[in-house]
Design a binder for these strands. Sequence first.
DNA 1: TGCCGATTATGACAACGGTCATGATAATGG
DNA 2: CCATTATCATGACCGTTGTCATAATCGGCA
Lengths: 198, 198
Amino acid sequence: MTTSERGPRERMVFSAAQLIRRDGVTATGLREVVSDAEAPRGSLQHYFPGGKEQLVNEAVEWAGRYAADRIARFLSTMSRPTPGKLFAAMVRQWTDEFKATGDLKGCPVAAATVDCADTVESTRAASAAAFACWRRPIARELTAMGVPPRKADALATLMISSLEGAILMSRAEQNVRPLTTVARELAPYLDSCATQEA
Amino acid sequence: MTTSERGPRERMVFSAAQLIRRDGVTATGLREVVSDAEAPRGSLQHYFPGGKEQLVNEAVEWAGRYAADRIARFLSTMSRPTPGKLFAAMVRQWTDEFKATGDLKGCPVAAATVDCADTVESTRAASAAAFACWRRPIARELTAMGVPPRKADALATLMISSLEGAILMSRAEQNVRPLTTVARELAPYLDSCATQEA
DNA sequence: TGCCGATTATGACAACGGTCATGATAATGG
DNA sequence: CCATTATCATGACCGTTGTCATAATCGGCA
């Protein structure tokens, strides 16, 4: 999670994701990304000949992979996983960040969707791919918990939707209430889908 | 819904909301708003001495009131309203727009949150107020359907969160699948909260 | 008519954006 | 050691942005 020893290229993608998370795509300047990543400015045009569009798309892809990887990590910490517990863990990642840093940043994929879906086709496609990349492992784990495959995919969509929306509301309110509320309301229903076949 | 006979001031607020819906706050230029609203440029500094920040905030407030007013309108078309039917109607408004125009614009409040929550305090506050203004009539109607007040507020938060998230995913996918999925999954659970006291 | 505030017109300014051209330096392999 | 590529440095360009200063025009009212 820290800057670590990665090359300038990866650092720029990471920094771009973080800045997009906070300010949105349009308000994030390339010079700002470069300085935040402590990367040489010349590297931009070298590693990202596609310009800002390419950098943003890679940041979105990175975020999708990151979210997907977290799912496996969440599961590994549970002795007896259930859909509700998985969702609670997803939500907790955001409430924890709020408690730690004092304010909530957003999701890079959501920001890219809001800012680019209607103007930059490749970024819209990258966002869709990131959501799909995130949804896949969730659905897989849900089926492993006894949810029928068709239903698992629908529940995964519901989980991501509710989480993204709750992030939005929590950012606006500067309060984790929407996040915790959504987790509390949805968890029992999600669990009920794992036990009963429907 | 059309440009109608309103004054330049209202037209600019309306146009701002529409453009923000499509491109986000940062990418929406004041000159673009003026031309879209067919308003005189000089009116900008006359009606909005607070600059872009004021215009954006008013657009967000307008969107919040609009969403709140829709709730009453939805209810008026139902003979026997239930929480699930109300949520389905909220979702349908978006899927209908997709069918009509061919692509999905976003929600202005979501865009303002994504683009300004961490940088423009007044806009963050306006977004929070808009969400609250939207949530209030939903919770009120839910209690009228038999949901306990405390639970009604939580369900209203869940409904808005799921809808906003589903809008995001649907925009990314250019497909209403997430919207319809969320409606289908959530409606039965919402209805179950109206019958059983809990 | 003549005045006065509300509204609109117009142009400029300073800052910032992404992009590109060009050249320097470092690294690598023959 | 040379050559060829990878990486980085720098400065400029051009368009756009929000904002502002200034002046023209319109409205109604005395």
